[in-house]
Nucleic acid binder design. Sequence first.
DNA 1: CATCCATGCAGAAACGTACCTGTCAACGAG
DNA 2: CTCGTTGACAGGTACGTTTCTGCATGGATG
Lengths: 363, 363
Amino acid sequence: MSRTDTSRRGSRQSRAGIRDVAAAAGVSITTVSDALNGKGRLPDATRRHVREVADRLGYRPSAAARTLRTGKSGLIGLTVTTYGDEPFTFTEFAYFAEMARAATSAALARGYALVILPATSRHDVWQNVALDGTVVIDPSDHDPVVTELVRQGLPVVSDGRPAGTLPVTAWVDNDHEAAVLGLLDHLAAAGARRIGLLTGNTTDTYTRLSTTAYLSWCERVGQDPVYETYPAHDPCAGAVAADRLLARPDRPDAVYGLFDPNGTDLLAAARRYGLRVPDDLLLVCCSESTVYAATEPPITTLSLKPRRIGTAVVQLLIDAIEGIDENRPVEQVIPTELIVRTSSQRRRSPRTKVSPPRSPAQD
Amino acid sequence: MSRTDTSRRGSRQSRAGIRDVAAAAGVSITTVSDALNGKGRLPDATRRHVREVADRLGYRPSAAARTLRTGKSGLIGLTVTTYGDEPFTFTEFAYFAEMARAATSAALARGYALVILPATSRHDVWQNVALDGTVVIDPSDHDPVVTELVRQGLPVVSDGRPAGTLPVTAWVDNDHEAAVLGLLDHLAAAGARRIGLLTGNTTDTYTRLSTTAYLSWCERVGQDPVYETYPAHDPCAGAVAADRLLARPDRPDAVYGLFDPNGTDLLAAARRYGLRVPDDLLLVCCSESTVYAATEPPITTLSLKPRRIGTAVVQLLIDAIEGIDENRPVEQVIPTELIVRTSSQRRRSPRTKVSPPRSPAQD
DNA sequence: CATCCATGCAGAAACGTACCTGTCAACGAG
DNA sequence: CTCGTTGACAGGTACGTTTCTGCATGGATG
């Protein structure tokens, strides 16, 4: 009952350690550890007793000590590419938020926590945190961070297939080519004769694959490509590029925008030129934002299913960390979803007085 | 040059530790530690030599051991409230993303990393990570997590002033009352006779303060309050509530929406009822999203300046962790910004053929 | 009765670092 | 010549766990 002051130090009030619990419960340190971690062979009575004493003392095991001993920290890095000195970019907000949210949930469910670590972090920060593995979003060609991590023997799972010979443990990605081809077919089926593209001038895999898919589709159907590129990480450049695209002499009658804000950008540009959507111009953009369900008209979007990706990435990583089933698939393709709304349907749907509220964008 | 195998274990190839470096450099462990950490009094020659050997061996100090020894982990928790089992909610995407982004940058600049930890996390996850302190976003009245953390002696800084007697170390917040009052005055100045409110039915501080500010403004100017409430964490309820508000017999001629998606919700509802914005209906909503610059018409938004908040929160927390200037302000109020666009200006601006692209939403 | 195994627990060795406490040489002052 | 001083390092302990090994005890088995 009374505080047995068998502590080795005169210092008062430092947090209770495992040996304080052992002393108070009248057992050995081993027994406390086993009782609390459900290991060893102890009678239930002892186990309960130890647990109760630990509770009473407010005992909290030291994460640092445990990590040092076991070599596992329960921490997963979430690495985001940076433009300038800011972590993750303007154009990827909704995608990143959804993906990170799902990843956090998935990690948590398996007892892990996520640490946000921009790729450009100072080296000393990287080294001051004990990671069990890392998720890398859209790694660049020869990402020094990934190389370094792999060299340290840490598993690395990337969102987006690695470019070149980047030695990731596993990756998850969409089939961007199939997505773009399907989407272009959808537009063509809706009556588009000349489909334009609004794309980025960066070299990341997503942009590259999507653009080449567009070009090959054009070649297949015998259409001249009509596209404008812009630096996607610049928040104002998109509107300018959208304007350029619709100002061209060979103005397209349908446009696919590769980045999230392109939908509103294109819609605004269309209005400036007096183009009605979808009558004069069909519109699709890649976005996870639900605002496109409530625009006038609602805009068809391509969803990359960031929640599925976030979940899959974390599962793969934790499997690798825990050495579960070594010969599990190291790459996983998540299907995209085309959410068809008014902007890509040639025939305008009859105007309803009160349309039903938009449905939640679960999963 | 040759691998001096003085390692105490027969085991091969385990990561180089500090004593491997010491052996290879022909000095003691102390010297290595001092040389690498810039402490002690060593001649520059020794320091350089040790550093070089450490580099050659690919030595990476163990974060866990360092944490155990020093008691500092360099990790800051970022706690988000949850609705259901998902971290952070639909309505706060843009705000949260901006805030987290700024917080990450600020922490990084001072050598800390952020760990995402939903408030409802399993207890064992909380305990498995060694935190130096925690940022809590919008803590509820008697948040058990905050209480627990404070009891452990960890500094806690909250985004949003703590309700009741929550014992946070410091907090950062906007002056929500002033913001709402100013915004309502702005609408009144633009000619609004009856201003409605679209608000939440939750009890968090933001919603409560904003709503009471609205009510007291109404009382002051002698207007009957016209408002609808809905569960803000439900992604479809907003559209329904917006519709309800505009369907009322005492239909307002101006509306302020408290949550991010309310702008598009209200705009869509207005269209259904044939109301022109801003001619028949003035519109303002609280949002960090840039889509409202490109809607038709562009919508006036109230920005809570999440980036400033994120930065301030982290600075305050790290100051507390490092014990800098104990008597520093423990509360900080960040001014809001009303970004005035067409939707809240009575007179429609002349239609331009090509409007300039929207400006970036820096800071 | 001797042997064997399962049970219930204790002792002690790591884990890798930081830092406190020496030790030893050189050196200038008295 | 002696003595404090200072520079340059080495030794050793503590941080708080987990876990391997080992030691009793007691009942079942031959």
